[in-house]
Design a protein around this nucleic acid. Structure first.
Lengths: 112, 112
DNA sequence: GTTGACACCTAGTAATACGAGGTGTAGGTT
DNA sequence: AACCTACACCTCGTATTACTAGGTGTCAAC
């Protein structure tokens, strides 16, 4: 149920979602919520600035459009974005397996 | 090879290591480096303040000792510390599987 | 007698996720 | 008509936190 504390890994999630197809910010939030089964229910104040950051870094481009009276900013991965994504996937793999190795030391809480 | 960017998960690692047996700060660093196979090679400026923080939060206690002329501060988990650990293990489990669910959407980079 | 491993510490910095607010449209319900 | 909810965007400030860059001191080896 916790959405907080995805500290360094937000970019990976955003890039991964948008890599599957162009999406606007609000849709990214929804997609993340659904795909994570409510684990990631990110506030807009988290996602929008992050998207701006990624665009500024050259990993995303965006385009404005208007759909049924609402303006949307739709994001797309650049070549750099794809490169960054696959790099960050690898980092995640390494990171999470390192954590696993550390945690594996003591089985699980046997309430000592 | 990178040790940085373990953003929100440092506490989990420290608690997990110390839960296996009392350890002093320097030994915690070594243990983390070895167990993670060099992935986590944490600077002292990261670990020591974190240990202080955990102690202040009541999750650790410490005791000074002197071994071969060197003073050591050895840490131990409190009851709260054990509770926090098992909570954070669970959080990690949930967090990492949520990430996996998000990433699983598109197989792996087929260089599109 | 200097270097390197051991062993601790603090102060400051940069990054960043989030909270709290704000703007506006469309489509309902009351 | 007034209101609410979902959609859709935004910014500013704050708190946390990992890290950098320093500092102190012991011991063994060279």
């Amino acid at each position: 149920m916790r959405g907080q504390a995805l500290k360094g890994h937000l970019d990976l999630l955003l890039l991964a979602i948008i890599a599957e197809g162009p999406k606007h910010g609000y849709a990214v939030i929804e997609e993340l919520r659904i795909r994570s089964e409510e684990t990631f229910d990110l506030p807009e104040g988290t996602v929008y600035p992050a998207l701006h950051r990624l665009q500024k870094a050259g990993l995303l481009t965006s385009e404005w459009s208007e759909v049924q009276g609402r303006r949307r900013r739709t994001y797309l991965l650049t070549k750099q974005g794809h490169a960054a994504l696959s790099e960050q996937r690898q980092s995640w793999e390494e990171f999470s397996s390192a954590i696993k190795r550390v945690l594996k030391g003591a089985p699980w809480p046997s309430t000592p």
